[in-house]
């Protein structure tokens, strides 16, 4: 395989990885703030994508407005879910909390099928057709633009956490709940906000993924890909999610490119990140950049 082909694989891996990173960040925000492993992240993404699609095709809004609609709709869903379902589950066993989010994902999938039907839909053309050329690497504009949107969203989120009062309060709560509470931070608001943020992030990611490859109620299955990413990056590290997303995107693309010919029809791409996940946990049981829990009596 030539260097050019390698670069092509690597760069389109980075593009996929950027999107993984965006989804994973939504997941990490919720885990950091509330300790919940959110199995519904993929379905929040799918709902967001459908909101955006509806805004564009049914309401015939421009793309930018559709992004806003997707984000707003998802924010509503996030807030509702946190208030009605997750809050009563505070302090319950991990298995219960995990299962609640799995239950939610199933409800979302069913609702989407009822509302939008089960078939595949695609977004109207949005971006200029001209592919982006980076030296020997050619990126179709369907990939380049969504990647840039994902990147912008990640930068905006990082800025929110670093520079706004609310972002700082959320970071403080994640670090030390009791102290944050003592400082007068409204913990419940932080929990609610973290779900809203996660839903908005997921919705943006959903629109981006939808623009690239079309949408259906099964779109949420991509959510599973979060896990290798956050195990690499650490369940509670936003920077880690970014790095982890991109590394996993590149890894699965390279694995697919180089190993698929050896295993015809096997889809090595699908399984490679999970093998990496297991290997990482063997070496570092709390993820590569995750915080180790200190055991106490």
């Amino acid at each position: 395989m030539t260097v050019d082909e390698f670069l092509q694989l690597a760069v389109s891996g980075v593009v996929t990885g950027g999107i993984y990173a965006l989804i994973a960040i939504g997941f990490v925000v919720v885990y950091k703030a509330t300790g919940v492993i959110n199995f519904a992240t993929g379905e929040l993404m799918m709902l967001g994508a459908f909101f955006g699609w509806t805004a564009m095709t049914v309401l015939e809004l421009p793309f930018a407005a559709a992004l806003v609609v997707a984000a707003a709709g998802a924010a509503g869903v996030g807030a509702l879910v946190e208030r009605v379902v997750l809050r009563p589950m505070l302090g319950q066993r991990p298995i219960s909390v995990i299962m609640v989010t799995i239950g939610l994902s199933s409800v979302f999938k069913g609702l989407a099928q009822l509302l939008w039907g089960g078939e595949y839909r695609s977004f109207p053309p949005i971006f200029p057709r001209k592919p982006l050329e980076l030296g020997p690497v050619i990126l179709p504009s369907r990939q380049a633009w969504p990647f840039l949107i994902a990147l912008a969203a990640i930068v905006a989120l990082a800025a929110f956490f670093r520079f706004t009062r609310t972002g700082t309060a959320m970071r403080a709560t994640a670090d030390d709940q009791a102290t944050a509470f003592g400082m007068g931070i409204d913990i419940r608001r932080v929990f609610s906000l973290s779900w809203i943020l996660a839903a908005v992030t997921a919705a943006l990611a959903g629109v981006v993924v939808g623009v690239i490859g079309g949408i259906s109620p099964q779109l949420g299955a991509v959510g599973l890909r979060i896990f290798p990413v956050v195990i690499l990056g650490g369940l509670d590290s936003i920077g880690g999610a970014l790095v982890g997303g991109i590394v996993m995107g590149v890894l699965e693309n390279l694995a697919g490119g180089y190993l698929d010919p050896l295993f015809p029809g096997a889809g090595v791409k699908e399984v490679a990140p999970f093998i990496a996940l297991v290997l990482i946990l063997m070496v570092r049981p709390w993820g590569l950049f995750g915080t180790r829990e200190i055991e106490r009596l």
């Binding site: 239950g103 199933s106 409800v107 069913g110 989407a112």
Partner: peptide, 11 residues
């Protein structure tokens, strides 16, 4: 879809 919804809502 109803199966999905009922299954999730049951959990």
């Amino acid at each position: 879809p109803m199966k999905e919804i009922v299954f999730g809502a049951m959990i």
